[in-house]
Design a binder for these strands. Structure first.
Ligand SMILES: [Mn+2]
Ligand SMILES: [Mn+2]
Ligand SMILES: [Zn+2]
Ligand SMILES: [Zn+2]
Lengths: 126, 126
DNA sequence: TTTATTTTTGCAACTCAGTCGCAATAAAAC
DNA sequence: GTTTTATTGCGACTGAGTTGCAAAAATAAA
């Protein structure tokens, strides 16, 4: 499991994430790489990159799948759990490096937390 | 805007929410009311009930639309913003009545917060 | 470097949630 | 009861995501 072969498509995607700082929706990636690789290929490469711990995925405010690169994750284990933010003005989606305050719920065992924030980013509020 | 006519389908849906305490996915509602009303009708009724402030919607962990009844909302304004929780064991989805701790982000104006929790519910952990 | 093995890709067809236009129907108003 | 207007059913559609399979590419073996 994970990336085994270094294909042209894999390079294109990993190069993209190398210079991309924020998060990106798969829909945008499909559009970006239209003509260079097939839609299914993108989904499959992202799947493998996620298995490898090189990117992580989450659902944006619209419920669509997004990806961003990992920082300290390993193959099979994702350790970077954080909120995600989308600017309503410019549409940019990004990872937010801060802890999520997990609410204490009586008689409930919380295992997973997904926090999605919407608002105005630095560039758009000035 | 909002519910104007008291049709049979509207009654069925509102009756359902009257006795339903948790949240429910639209997919389940479509299944539940199959034979009694059309899929489009369900989506449209839920839309109107939400406009009226009688139910609110959110996306579940799978990105699918869910609804739950409101408590102190009015037509056009939803004031009950809270996390939602899904039990991985029984699948039940519910509203969580607690405040969401909004993280302070430098140079960002947070307008909307969506918090989705996954774990084990009271019934399933005992 | 040639050949064999195994992974990856393209393609086309598919699934499934959600939406839409429009004619038929039902609720409320008159 | 008749008119007006909102609602519904239906079927077709959209768009994200998935899948099976044969062709192509990458790696391993010879
Ligand atoms: Mn992230
Ligand atoms: Mn709720
Ligand atoms: Zn912005
Ligand atoms: Zn449970």
């Amino acid at each position: 499991m994970g990336i085994v072969r270094n294909t042209k498509s894999v390079s294109l995607v990993t190069d993209f994430f190398r210079q991309m700082d924020g998060a990106v929706g798969v829909v945008e990636l499909v559009e970006k790489f239209k003509g260079q690789m097939n839609k299914s290929t993108i989904y499959r490469i992202l799947d493998r990159l996620e298995d490898e711990g090189r990117v992580h995925s989450f659902l944006g405010g619209n419920g669509l799948k997004h990806y961003a690169k990992c920082h300290n994750c390993t193959s099979g284990h994702h350790s970077d759990i954080h909120p995600h933010f989308q600017c309503t003005s410019c549409g940019k989606v990004e990872c937010v490096s801060c802890e999520i305050a997990i609410p204490e719920l009586p008689n409930k065992r919380i295992q997973q937390v997904q926090l999605f924030l919407t608002g105005t980013c630095e560039g758009c509020s000035s």
